[in-house]
């Protein structure tokens, strides 16, 4: 048996105070920055690896399919059966209930 005593403190108000103080310090540091810096005319434009931003404003935004694409592509073998398992057929939904019921029944008769 692991012998760990639960200790420690969690206080959201202290946490929020710490966040506020940190923000304040960061702001002071920001204000102490070099005042000779000049903003360029490209201010506010998205930076796309130095390329010029496209005219059509919709093309700047990354659509939902592309986010985490690498992650889902790498774990394709895990995701595909899951997505295809949700077939949308009523019978399949019922199968899952009956299968779970059978497994739980067997477990309860063996273990309880």
């Amino acid at each position: 048996m692991i012998d760990i005593v639960l200790e420690g403190i969690w206080s959201p108000i202290v946490f929020i105070l710490v966040i506020l103080i940190t923000t304040l310090v960061a702001y002071i540091l920001y204000e102490m920055g070099n005042p000779s810096y000049k903003r360029t005319k490209h201010k506010g434009e998205p930076f796309i690896s130095g390329n010029r931003p496209p005219k059509d404003i919709r093309k700047i935004h990354v659509p939902g399919d592309n986010l985490f694409w690498g992650f889902t592509e790498a774990l394709k073998n895990y995701f595909e059966p899951l997505v295809e398992g949700h077939t949308g057929k009523l019978n399949d939904y019922m199968y899952w209930v009956v299968i779970t019921l059978a497994v739980v029944l067997i477990y309860i008769y063996m273990a309880v």
Binding site: V83, H86, T87, G88, K89, L90
Partner: peptide, 9 residues
């Protein structure tokens, strides 16, 4: 039920 399955994935 094979046709009534627009809610899937």
């Amino acid at each position: 039920t094979d046709d009534v399955r627009r809610c899937k994935e």
